[in-house]
Amino acid sequence: MEDVAVKAEGISKAYNGHRVLENISFQIEKGEVFGFIGPDGAGKTTLFRILSSLILPEKGEAFVYGLNVVDKYRDVRNITGYVAERFSLYRDLTVEENIRFFATVFGTTLSENYDLIKDVYRNLEPFKNRRAGRLSGGMKQKLALCRALIHRPQILLLDESTTGVDAVSRREFWEMLHKLKAGGMTIALTTSYMDEAAKCDRVALLYNGRIMKTGSPDGIADSFGLDLIQVRSQRLYAVKKELEKLPSAPSVSLFGDSVHVISGEKGLSLEDIEGFLKKRGFEDTQVERSRPGIEDCFLALSRGYKKKGTDGEGY
């Protein structure tokens, strides 16, 4: 038990009869960066509100560093740094006032924990007399992170911290997280960006309130078990439309500058696809086998879930 940072068993939650979380179980090790990857509406925020003791689970139990999030919520809050999806600091206070206020709430001071937050706070210091409500999105995000670190928590819970943030700022944010991890902090986070999965030690793929899969990014990719073929062309969308007519390919998806084809039970060879496209006038294609990524896995799994749920068309 002593290596476990978070343990959740059978957590369920519903709002107004609508099931948001369904029998969620997982374990996060101490010092791990653990990502819950899923779209809006998957249940990520509800799960993090339960873990941070803000709402009660209907069924199931969760423990943070061995503390039950229901019975021991005060202790949980002392060791947890939670960053909510929405900016939840005082907009009318300055950057510095916000930090000092929250430090006082937790019975500490800025100088006492300055070493922990200095990397993040240095970026904010030129604006320390600016009201929080007038900061840019990226700066608000950094201030929220400072606030969450001010009481030297054992674990950070970051809910959608990178949503709507540009690719460059997201990279900087991840660099900060990896520094904190190097200092021994456990980090649990939610994101809807599939590419961020690769930056986590382990991830859980969350969809419609269920965990579809848990594991390391590589482990999940290795367990994919389906044959993935990647096709490149100058006329990508036209190629995709054409490949959708292949009878033996149940899944054809655009992936940036290529199309990913997952062949069905019969299997498809590279020559099959090349020949198929050539016959239809696509001469410039490059076809090769490829290793699936987290997004391939998520697509395949979520399409399977949709089929079970509805008429096969999903939404």
């Binding site: 998957a42 959608e160 949503t163 809807s192 969308y237 998806s253 998520f298 697509l299 979520s302």
Partner: peptide, 20 residues
Amino acid sequence: DEPTSGVDPDTRRQFWDLIY
């Protein structure tokens, strides 16, 4: 303006079909 933020990968692709 950022029409697909937070949308699941499958729906994101259906959205791009609509765009095309």
